[in-house]
């Protein structure tokens, strides 16, 4: 699987922690962007997702807001 996956998160948000855990458990490689320290990337996330909540996951340009296992499983084919 060669999908490009970006996770926008903050270190303190429990859903972000669970999302990253879930991806690791399923051996999914992803880039994590900590939006609490990177203002430019935070703005990029807000623009992409049209909202200001974390986590946001970008799977090959497809944007999913929040940690919804069934949607993420479906998009990743796992």
């Amino acid at each position: 699987m060669d999908k490009k996956i970006i996770v926008y998160s903050t270190p303190t948000c429990p859903h972000c922690i669970r999302l990253k855990e879930f991806l690791r458990e399923n051996n999914i490689v992803f880039d994590n962007i900590d939006v609490s320290t990177d203002k430019t990337k935070a703005d990029e996330m807000i623009k992409k997702s049209g909202q200001m909540g974390v986590p946001v996951i970008d799977i090959d340009g497809e944007i999913i807001v929040g940690f919804d296992t069934s949607v993420i499983k479906q998009k990743l084919g796992i």
């Binding site: 903050t10 303190t12 948000c13 429990p14 859903h15 972000c16 939006v35 609490s36 320290t37 935070a42 996330m45 807000i46 049209g50 909202q51 200001m52 909540g53 974390v54 807001v65």
Partner: peptide
């Protein structure tokens, strides 16, 4: 989610 948040620790940094 567009400015209103219920978890300051989660969404505050934005």
């Amino acid at each position: 989610g567009k400015g209103i948040a219920y978890c300051a620790t989660c969404d505050g940094p934005l």
